[in-house]
Design a protein around this nucleic acid. Sequence first.
DNA 1: GTCTATATTGTGATAGAC
DNA 2: GTCTATCACAATATAGAC
Lengths: 215, 215
Amino acid sequence: MTVVVSYGSNRVRHLRRKGQQILEAARTVFLEAGFDTSSMDAIARQAGVSKATLYAHFENKEDLFEALIRFECQTIGANFYRPDPLAEAWADELEKLATNLRKLFSENDVPAVYRIIVPVASRFPRLAQIFFEEGPGAAIRDTMAYLETLCEAGHLQIPDLEIAAEQFIFLVSGDLELRGALSLPRRPAEKGRELTRSSIAMFIQYYSKPAPSAL
Amino acid sequence: MTVVVSYGSNRVRHLRRKGQQILEAARTVFLEAGFDTSSMDAIARQAGVSKATLYAHFENKEDLFEALIRFECQTIGANFYRPDPLAEAWADELEKLATNLRKLFSENDVPAVYRIIVPVASRFPRLAQIFFEEGPGAAIRDTMAYLETLCEAGHLQIPDLEIAAEQFIFLVSGDLELRGALSLPRRPAEKGRELTRSSIAMFIQYYSKPAPSAL
DNA sequence: GTCTATATTGTGATAGAC
DNA sequence: GTCTATCACAATATAGAC
């Protein structure tokens, strides 16, 4: 029933579209049920194609899963907030960074990707590595870079940028990641705002000290 | 081949032993492969019994999994360090608490339980709730209680105990939980010690202020 | 490349003898 | 309670026609 124009370029476009169609179906099914519980039958049904077509585009289930994870990592990375190193109100930039992180951990599909990558991490260590580097790792690196500019500008004094970036991220994240992973309800937004405010104040106060290693 | 004495009490003991034997086998298999990938065949083989015996002791796969999670939660809770409210060196108590948390997140089977509970959390919400309440939730409650004694003793001044406990726990935990969930290698212990030291100093400095809400 | 139909394997759970 | 043998079913992946 499908109309397929027979010359080359259109054929390629046609393939690309089917591939994206399958990937989108895989996204729906995998993010909902995870790798092991999702069946290739269900994905084919969701995509509106036959299983044979599915296997024509992706070598096997693992291959399709990897394609999805890579795609999601790109999306997540694109949603990071990059603080403006030239902005004068640097404390506000830190707050925007924190708010963006909390938003990522709660609204977007970051928790969903986390939920499906965790159970297969030991089976597909390469995928786990990719997720860590392009997700949390990238967030840490970005934060380190911005904190470094704040040090160079004389606003903060940080002996170990990596440790500081980690402290910032886990302070403002709080239990969001954990609750997301366990599909538990989040607490009232007011509590989250208060945690963010308090955490940023704590962070700035500590690293504003001339000699934080003095305790 | 098994010698079974026929009068009542011994029979019960025999059952109890078989039950524990099965639970231990389930522990080995489930913690290694997770709920979906583990088969009742494998568990029966590991336990050295037949599948029928297994189903005589546990209603179904889910029932056996729940028994394991409950058992693990008890073990985890028993390994918490409870700070001594009467100890004069309260900063040392905080450090012991932090060190114990990091030990739990890295050495024990906390990461393993976390890995297997995450993928089924939405299917078994009651189990996810139990894990949260008896794991992280209990840690937060214990920490809150100790921080409260420190406030009453005049060492600290904390406007919101729950937020503070959360900040403390996630500060000292850092990326341990994340790396454990993803089966990624931990970073050098020196980095962990430095993070702990720095985080405790940050925490104490902030909550030592007469009016932390001023900033 | 795409479909229908199928091969093959492994799963959770059970029947029936002892 | 415990075993052996088996059912009923769903899964991944493929064969063969078009």
